[in-house]
Design a protein around this nucleic acid. Structure first.
Lengths: 150, 150
DNA sequence: TATTGTTATACTCTATAACTATA
DNA sequence: TATAGTTATAGAGTATAACAATA
């Protein structure tokens, strides 16, 4: 009977999600961002200047919602909204200098967090964690896909 | 140089938090609940009938917010709001039959999910995951505590 | 005087629907 | 006719502040 230990493992994962979420929300608030806005900023960081349509699809929210997020990011100086050179219906959202610096900082901080979390973990145990996490992720994806179809 | 693998592990944990959150949000919507309301329902399940003050402290939100959450849960039939027997300023929030049945269902579903995620995972790998998760959680708590004080 | 919960007000994220400008 | 983005409207979660009733 290992059922109890399964429950403990899931509880730990759930607790981790809560802690990570709270920590991120707080840290982002300190620099004038929210988790939703930062998702948009990450897309711009990796894809470069994008239309709002593209952003809406990338972060899977409505066009209306992107309008609001971009409004807020423009107002706080993280992005600009400029006319699209070839399509006068569209805008092109671009990271400002401040936006670029900020997302680079976030990237570095995430890298540091990873290092602090796993730094002196023994290699054997660390391998178990990485492989276990990958398995759990695969199963979760399968379960979610199945439940959406069922 | 294991830094890349640290990043992978953190990325996996972050992806897990997103997947779990989306899956939960969708499943709760199907039964007429939200994650915020369900946090309150879980407190009632474990603590029994409670004042709104107690609930506000337990889920760490403002008194105003609890008023809104309880309003919504009363309207959808998961809880009742009754006068407190000994303190006429306070109300006592109590799970209805429907609320009790629902939270028991959620508990069972979570148990099933744990089983499906970890069922046929080899004992050795599973041990690595559980111990690794516990270590990561401890470190995360330490880091967050330190950053809040610093 | 202190506490419980409410009303008042405001901000963020989210959605759908109607509409404008452009393709 | 189709598409990009806006305005209009609505609902959920969150907060602070002022206020009522009661302790």
């Amino acid at each position: 009977m290992y059922d109890d230990r399964y429950d403990v493992a899931l509880d730990q994962i759930l607790e981790l999600t809560v802690l990570l979420n709270e920590d991120m929300t707080g840290a982002l608030a300190d620099i004038g961002l929210t988790t939703s806005r930062v998702r948009l900023v990450w897309v711009l960081h990796r894809a470069g200047p994008s239309t709002q349509k593209t952003l809406a699809e990338a972060i899977d929210v409505s066009a209306r919602n992107v309008t609001g997020l971009v409004d807020a990011l423009v107002e706080t100086g993280f992005v600009t909204r400029e006319p699209h050179p070839h399509d006068r219906r569209a805008s092109l959202v671009t990271l400002t200098e401040r936006g670029t610096v900020t997302v680079n900082d976030l990237e570095r901080q995430q890298h540091e967090l990873a290092h602090q979390l796993f730094a002196d973990m023994s290699t054997r145990r660390y391998d178990g964690l990485v492989k276990g996490m990958a398995d759990v992720l695969d199963r979760l994806r399968t379960l979610i896909t199945a439940s959406k179809e069922g």
